[in-house]
């Protein structure tokens, strides 16, 4: 493996990792703050991708505006889902099981709705002008859109860090993750907080779907592939652990990128194996503190 090839794989892995992280961070946010496992998170990714197709390819909206609007659109659907569906089962006996079930139903419904609206054929989105070709660094030619994704990922990480650590909203969200009842006692509107978190997380998912659309073709099954991958990332990093998701995404992204070179056929197995190993030996995630087992 020569150096330039190594760099290429590294960049490719980083791109995958960034997209994975962007989706997974939404999943982990909902779990961490709301204790909700959103199995349908991948479907919001898919909604974002299709909205982007609709706006950018069909309606010829400006690419960057289209990205943002797609994210907002997915977030809106997320808010509707939270208010009308998930909120109704909070606190029910066997809640975790019903959450998984409810969001599984959402996958089925959204999948079919997307098929009805956009059909089953593959959709493509052109890369925005200025990011169609490669960038030359030394004798390396790196696709500029990949670099763009990586940069966007870094921006989101920094922004998220700022929001979580420096703003009141972030502090509320972090407090909610620890003790929801106390927040209520402090006079904070807990249901509203939950809805907003759900909206932000699904918007992030939709935005990622739109961002990834020029790289991957948009298909009705996209949500399902994405949820399994981001699930793996979240489990590895620790459910509800924002930074863990980042590390998990990097690990899986690079593992896949280099795995494909070494054992092309079996590379997809690696991520499952890693997830299984983590769940067995440190179920709370590689990057989360070990929990004290409750008596």
């Amino acid at each position: 493996m020569d150096f330039s090839f190594f760099i290429m794989q590294l960049i490719s892995g980083l791109t995958v990792a960034t997209l994975l992280f962007l989706v997974a961070s939404g999943l982990t946010l909902i779990f961490g703050v709301g204790d909700v496992f959103n199995f349908a998170h991948g479907s919001f990714y898919m909604i974002g991708a299709y909205l982007a197709f609709q706006m950018i390819s069909v309606l010829q909206v400006n690419f960057w505006l289209g990205l943002v609007l797609s994210g907002l659109g997915a977030g809106l659907v997320g808010i509707v889902a939270e208010v009308f569906l998930l909120r109704r089962i909070y606190g029910r006996k066997h809640e975790a099981g019903f959450q998984i079930l409810l969001t599984f139903c959402l996958i089925l419904i959204i999948d079919d709705l997307v098929k009805i609206i956009w059909g089953t054929e593959y959709k493509t989105i052109q890369r925005p002008s200025g990011f169609t070709g490669p960038v030359q660094i030394g004798d390396l030619y790196i696709p500029s859109y990949n670099l763009l994704i990586i940069v966007v990922g870094i921006i989101v990480v920094v922004a998220a860090w700022w929001v979580l650590n420096k703003t009141r909203a972030g502090k509320i969200a972090r407090a909610a993750a620890v003790d929801r009842e106390m927040l209520g006692a402090m006079g904070i509107n807990v249901p509203m907080t939950m809805t907003m978190v759900f909206g932000i997380a699904t918007a992030l998912g939709g935005f990622t779907g739109a961002l990834a659309a020029p790289l991957r073709s948009v298909t009705p099954g996209a949500g399902v592939e994405v949820i399994i991958d981001s699930l793996i990332v979240v489990v590895i990093g620790g459910m509800g652990n924002f930074w863990g998701a980042w590390m998990g995404a990097l690990l899986i992204g690079e593992l896949t990128a280099f795995g494909i070179v070494i054992v092309p056929k079996w590379a997809t197995l690696f991520s499952y194996l890693v997830m299984i190993i983590v769940l067995i030996f440190k179920p709370e995630g590689l990057f989360s503190p070990r929990k004290i087992r409750k008596v």
Binding site: I100, I228, L231, I232, V235, M239, W266, I280, P283
Partner: peptide
């Protein structure tokens, strides 16, 4: 291995094992 974890983690681990087997059979 499964009984070491509970709740949502149990569900996810069962999913992971099934998907692993799916991938093996597929490939």
């Amino acid at each position: 291995l499964l009984i070491r974890v509970g709740g949502v983690y149990f569900t996810m681990l069962t999913l992971a094992f099934a998907q692993l087997m799916y991938q093996i059979m597929f490939k």
